[in-house]
Design a protein around this nucleic acid. Structure first.
Length: 570
DNA sequence: AAGGGGTGCAACCGCTGCGGG
DNA sequence: TCCCGCAGCGGTTGCACCCCT
């Protein structure tokens, strides 16, 4: 049968059907809308619920022509539906092998875990749920959000691996594979940074560079998960634009017990986090009256009321209590990421995964800054930011470490039982000693460059690399890390780092507990520092231009700025 | 019985990337 | 290179149904 003959025949038969469509659905006339602009047969397109007759026409069309070419449906049939509508109807309701009915427990579990890993990637999720559509999953999730919100439950039950900080690489608009959605959501993030995020960072006026999707690394290196955990304590969650119907919700980004379980880790975060009784300044989920000891994971909340040893005067209001932020997009942009996760993630307990009471996110109080002049402008230098971060860190140290006592640059800095002498400042602050510049790089790792599936082997550090210079700056004279040896090396490193040097990066991470410096597995390089938008952007560009740079890492840079969001729209 | 609010599903809308002309 | 149409995705809305008062 030729196309022409088919068209003639079907048009003829469908014309009869066409009239019956509206006859059987008088209200359809009210649904004739303006959504689809194109039109066949000289009439406007119908909107609203599909009738069984229309379904039959569409099914018949697909049988004859196959899927696709949806805009030709109305040409070849009398169906007064736009192509989009046809595609949607087919994909969500008419195509074979669709699974109808409620989600099974297993499916629900999978959705929860996938969302924890992928975010609002409904289509990707649907690929892993045979017979289910993205729309179905999306609706389920939105319903679930609402339900759990009502119940005061967290979005993700315990056991769900939400260790990675999502909303992630997809927000990198400069990549070649970035999608329009990515860009849109990138803007969403920026908008959020201007709205809700500002609540947290109102007084900071700086941009944090967020490194996300570290979960792939956490399975390989405890340090990474700790870093990720630390980030999760300090960074705000954001994500897709909010829905007017379903209020935004921030799933708790929590360190899992497993993550915190590494021994001999860089900063003994586990020890510090899990000893709230020793440190009244630390706040754990288990402290929450609602959740008691349901969960082992603790979230460190920096205490905004902390007395700064440097005489810092807090300028921001403390922000306590649970806050609702945006749904994150905790995503891997590629299916491989999911696959990788799927093979490495143990199945959560079957029983109460979906219903158990667990954690509740607390809003991290804003960090407090005593030198607003340092960060009031987007043009502030990175080094200033780093130095400032050092102070913040120094202050924060008091918050979650009962042993840390950092008061000035010449004082010993106890960390994990070790003390390191801070010998220099940085950032042109030659007169005023940096209080604790080494803390700048505390919990920072490096930018990694290997293939994810590649077995890591220690390699020599490339001393030309700026990040290596940074790493070398951490080393104290005893060969341990965590100490800025001199300001010039730091400056040089930063200059190089931000200057567009490319190459293979292999950075070293030392141990504050006296562990010998070592090269970290290639997945785990994280440079964590609050960067202004300009420096951050350059850093990002540099990372993106570095051959072999871990795509999943550098794509995950997200800039959050309270007052520079416009400049971040690149 | 009526109506008001909640719920869940279906469909629409807006945006983007991609490919072809 | 630009424009246009298509396909796809994710957010949003419409609406029928249900439950409670």
């Amino acid at each position: 049968m030729t196309q022409m003959s088919y068209t003639m025949v079907t048009d003829e038969s469908d014309d009869a059907m066409y009239s019956s469509i509206y006859n059987e659905s008088p209200s359809a006339a009210d649904n004739i809308g303006s959504g689809c602009t194109s039109r066949g047969k000289g009439s406007v397109l119908k909107k609203g619920p599909w009738t069984s007759t229309e379904d039959g026409i569409l099914i018949d069309y697909v049988k004859r022509h196959g899927e696709g070419n949806w805009n030709t449906v109305q040409k070849h049939t009398s169906l007064a539906r736009c192509g989009k509508s046809c595609r949607l109807r087919w994909a969500n309701h008419l195509r074979p092998n669709l699974k109808k009915g409620a989600f099974s427990k297993e499916e629900e579990q999978l959705i929860v875990e996938m969302h924890a890993r992928m975010g609002n990637k409904w289509a990707q999720m649907a690929e892993h749920l045979p017979g289910r559509t993205d729309n179905e999953i999306k609706n389920y999730w939105n319903t679930r959000i609402k339900r759990r919100q009502r119940a005061g439950l967290p979005l993700y039950p315990p056991g769900t691996h939400v260790e990675d900080l999502h909303w992630s690489q997809e927000y990198h608009p400069s990549t070649s594979n970035v999608t329009g959605v990515d860009r849109r959501r990138h803007q969403d993030i920026l908008q959020l940074a201007n709205s809700k995020a500002n609540v947290l960072f109102d007084d900071l006026n700086f941009a944090n560079v967020l490194f996300e999707d570290l979960n792939f690394a956490t399975s390989l290196l405890p340090v990474a998960s700790h870093i990720s955990d630390m980030f999760s304590c300090n960074m705000l969650g954001t994500g897709a634009s909010s829905s007017s119907r379903y209020e935004s919700y921030t799933p708790p980004i929590l360190p899992s017990p497993k993550q915190l379980g590494g021994s001999g880790s860089l900063f003994n975060i586990r020890q510090e986090f899990q000893s709230p009784q020793k440190n009244p300044r630390s706040c754990s989920i288990s402290d929450h009256p609602m959740y008691g000891n349901h969960h082992q994971s603790d979230v460190m909340i920096q205490d905004s009321h902390h007395t700064f040893t440097d005489g810092m005067v807090p300028t921001s209001k403390p922000l306590f209590g649970a806050v609702k932020l945006e749904l994150p997009s905790f995503q891997y942009s590629e299916a491989s990421g999911f696959d990788q996760w799927k093979t490495t993630t143990p199945s959560p307990p079957q029983s109460d995964l979906l219903d158990s009471v667990d954690t509740y996110i607390q809003s991290p109080p804003p960090l407090e800054i005593d030198e607003p002049d340092c960060f009031s402008s987007c043009d502030t230098g990175l080094l200033d930011m780093l130095l400032h971060e050092a102070k913040i860190k120094a202050s924060a140290k008091h918050s979650f470490s009962s042993t840390a006592c950092i008061t000035d640059g010449t004082q010993d800095v106890p960390r994990g039982g070790e003390t390191h002498n801070i010998t220099s400042g940085a950032g042109g602050n030659s007169s005023g000693e940096i209080k604790s510049p080494s803390l700048i790089f505390e919990a920072f790792a490096v930018v990694k460059t290997e293939e994810l599936d590649q077995v890591w082997e220690p390699k020599r550090a490339d001393v030309v690399r700026p990040d290596v210079l940074l790493a070398s700056s951490w080393q104290d004279q005893q060969g341990r890390f965590g100490i800025v040896r001199d300001s010039s090396s730091l400056s040089d490193a930063l200059a190089l780092l931000l200057g567009g040097v490319s190459g293979n990066s292999y950075l070293t991470v030392g141990s504050s507990s006296g562990e010998a410096p070592r090269l970290v597995p290639p997945l785990v390089e994280i440079l964590r520092a609050p960067l202004l938008w300009r420096e951050g952007r350059r850093l990002k560009q540099w990372l993106s231009s570095s051959p072999g740079t871990n795509q999943m890492l550098w794509q995950n840079l997200v800039f959050v700025s309270s007052d520079c969001s416009e400049k971040l729209r690149y």
